[in-house]
Design a protein around this nucleic acid. Structure first.
Length: 295
DNA sequence: AACAAGCCCAACCGCCCGGCA
DNA sequence: CTGCCGGGCGGTTGGGCTTGT
């Protein structure tokens, strides 16, 4: 979108590149967002912390739901906006997978025009009459929170995809999530797993989300050049690897923020997220997910 | 085909709030 | 109590994309 530029501190501004996305995802996935202001330095990013935070929360974070808003989602936004005003972050908590920024954009570009000048209540009642899952007459905005059963099952595919059966491999789950339901096209990427033990650990997995940052890559070049570097982040391979920056700076990260790898031979990744939160997510109902995850 | 206008959304900016020393 | 710092939030903007003429 925005033309890349540098501010007076030498920090980059503007559109994020795929490489920057990979660095940020890899770093936050492994170490969490322990300090947004310091994070870019350790992650090898020439960005301000705010920019990193925004990029992560609005675009790279798992469970982000993209694409058109459903009628139910629009009804929810309209109703909540009527009751709460421009409290986009609060409204976003009622729409699993949607970010406040996305909701705000959708409101300004679409809903405001459609509903801004009409009586919102009237309009929403019409829409609500089409839906048997949303009670527009409920006066309490909080009580209008949609239960998991009020969304179609596909709405939650991203949540369900966050976890895989064979253990707690956060990054696998992340990639699974990124694959969600966007395209039927597919391409293969290499998955770094346990190369350290010398076994033939390279697997392939399908990545089918052209709208994701990963899709910046030409699919053919990914296959032919094996240049899909997303996972290189967690295992410095060459001296030119960007990972060198944060690997070299690891000593500066407080020990308590460095989560030891559980089992290097099987689960290379670890996360500084609250492990209890993540584990409980595996068992909790869907409507807790967006609250607990990655806050 | 070329241009203009409007749309859309990622990203930035500045303010506010809470935690902490 | 006060000031600093980091995070969060809402408003705004830049510019690519789409649609209309």
């Amino acid at each position: 979108m925005r033309t890349p530029s540098w501010d007076n501190r030498g920090l980059k501004k503007g559109t994020w590149t795929p490489e920057e996305d990979r660095k940020l995802v890899a770093y936050v996935t492994r170490y969490g967002s322990w300090n947004w202001r310091q994070l870019p330095r350790f992650a090898g990013l020439e960005r301000c912390g705010k920019s990193c935070r925004l990029r992560w929360l609005n675009y790279l974070r798992p469970n982000i739901k993209r694409g058109n808003f459903t009628d139910i989602e629009e009804e929810t936004i309209i109703k909540l906006h009527e009751n709460l005003g421009n409290k986009w972050s609060v409204i976003a908590t009622h729409l699993p997978g949607r970010t406040d920024n996305e909701i705000k954009n959708h409101w300004h570009t679409t809903l405001k025009k459609r509903f801004g000048k009409k009586t919102v209540q009237t309009e929403t009642n019409v829409k609500a009459s089409k839906s048997n899952s949303y009670k527009i007459s409920d006066p309490d905005p909080l009580s209008t929170e949609l239960s998991s059963s009020e969304f179609s099952s596909s709405d939650y595919t991203t949540h369900q995809n966050l976890f895989v059966e064979d253990g707690f491999d956060f990054l696998d789950a992340y990639l699974e999530d990124m694959n969600h339901n966007i395209s039927t096209e597919s391409f293969h990427i290499s998955q770094v797993t346990t190369q350290a033990n010398g076994s033939d650990a390279q697997k392939t997995m399908e990545c089918v989300r052209p709208e994701s940052p990963l899709s910046y890559y030409n699919e053919n070049s990914v296959v032919e050049n094996d240049d899909f570097g997303f996972l290189e982040a967690i295992e410095p391979i060459t001296e030119h690897s960007w990972t060198e920056a944060f690997v070299a700076d690891m000593s500066l990260i407080p020990n308590e923020l460095l989560v030891p790898l559980v089992n290097e031979s099987e689960s290379y990744f670890s996360s500084a997220y609250d492990v209890e939160d993540l584990w409980c997510l595996k068992n909790n109902s869907h409507d807790d997910l967006d609250v607990n995850l990655f806050q």
